[in-house]
Amino acid sequence: MDVLVYLIPVSLILGAVGLLAFVYTVRSNQYDDPEGDSRRILSDEWDDHPKP
């Protein structure tokens, strides 16, 4: 059972990474236009160079 000493912190840290990623997406307004974003991916306009 000694392995728990590593596994529990690892699982908690991985979960926390997910949580922080979610918090980041909320803070950076990534849920403002879900419909538009799902379509923008189809546009090849900025494929070769990023939008200035």
């Binding site: 236009d33 538009g36 379509r39 923008r40 189809l42 546009s43 306009e45």
Partner: peptide, 28 residues
């Protein structure tokens, strides 16, 4: 209603003199 509309509107607006930045929100 589609990604073609987004591109056309944004390209058209950005090409207009005086416009610094135009962004379309399709959901709204």
């Amino acid at each position: 209603h589609c990604q073609g509309c987004i591109s056309a509107v944004e390209r058209g607006l950005n090409a207009h003199p005086g416009v610094h930045d135009a962004r379309v929100n399709l959901t709204l």
